[in-house]
Simulated scan of single mutants.
Amino acid sequence: MLDFAEDTVSERASKPNVVDFTTAATASRAPGSRRAHLPDHPDAELIQACVEFGIAVRGASGGFEADPTGDNEFAQRMDTALLKRARKQQKLIATLRPTTLDGLRAKATVANMARTFDLDQSSALLSSLCTDVTQVHRSSKNTAAVVLT
């Protein structure tokens, strides 16, 4: 019986643990982390930030609609947290450059929402969007093409 135990220990010792760093890098991310499960899209980070911004600003207004109290004390607590999140996403969006029309459209939609909700950094986002539109226009082959609406 002792010989069997010694054989098992020596077998384990002869097989060192091997860490595959290619899978360890993705496996070490928290399940809820931003990039853990993004769709495969060239503008995934930008579009995800735009979606999170939209959820934050539209979620805040939904909270006020659902709050039955006269002074909106329940919604106000959530509103503060959501608007903080929206401002963080807005700042990130202003720094990201779209590489596809999907990314440009998402950023334009957020710029319109930011203007509607009048958040602090709307002018930086609008300026960034204008730069993006100019860059997309310059890189287009046929800038005189008619775009159907």
Rank of each mutant, 00 (worst) to 15 (best):
T22H: 10
A106H: 14
D79Q: 08
F53C: 04
M113T: 01
R87F: 01
R97W: 06
P42R: 04
N72I: 00
R29L: 12
R115V: 01
T109Y: 03
C50P: 07
A56I: 02
L38E: 07
R29T: 06
F117S: 06
R35D: 10
T22R: 12
A111V: 02
F64C: 01
N112F: 08
Q76R: 15
G32T: 11
R105I: 02
K88G: 00
A27W: 11
I93N: 05
D71H: 13
R58S: 04
D67F: 02
A75Y: 06
K91Q: 10
T26Y: 09
R29A: 07
A81S: 11
P42S: 05
A75P: 07
R77A: 10
S33N: 05
L83Y: 14
A30C: 02
H37W: 08
L83F: 08
A27G: 07
A94M: 09
C50M: 11
G32Y: 09
T23F: 08
K107S: 05
G62L: 02
A36M: 02
G63S: 03
N112P: 00
P98Y: 12
P39S: 12
N72M: 04
L46N: 09
T95V: 00
D40Y: 01
G59F: 03
T69V: 01
Q89L: 05
A27P: 02
H41I: 03
D67Q: 11
A30F: 12
P31G: 08
M113K: 06
K107A: 05
G63R: 09
P42E: 04
A108P: 00
S61A: 13
T26I: 11
A49Q: 14
F64V: 06
S61Y: 09
R35M: 07
A36Q: 14
S28G: 01
A108V: 01
F21L: 06
L92C: 00
A24W: 15
P39T: 06
S61M: 04
T69E: 06
R85E: 07
L38Q: 11
D118P: 00
T100R: 12
T116Q: 13
S28D: 04
N72K: 15
G59R: 10
L46T: 03
F64G: 01
D71T: 13
L96R: 15
K88M: 00
T109D: 05
P39E: 05
L96I: 14
T116F: 13
D67W: 02
G32A: 04
R97L: 01
S28K: 12
V57E: 10
M78N: 11
R34V: 11
R85H: 06
R87P: 00
T95W: 01
L101W: 08
L96N: 03
A30L: 14
I55Q: 08
Q90I: 02
F74P: 00
A36L: 00
G62W: 05
G54V: 05
E52F: 08
F117A: 12
N72S: 14
E52R: 13
I47W: 04
P42N: 03
E65N: 07
G70R: 09
R34Q: 05
L104S: 12
P31E: 14
R97D: 03
R87S: 15
A114S: 15
A44W: 04
T100K: 06
T26K: 15
H37E: 03
D102E: 10
R105V: 06
N112C: 03
L82V: 04
V51M: 14
L101N: 11
R97E: 08
A25W: 10
G70K: 15
A81W: 03
T99Y: 04
V110N: 07
T95D: 01
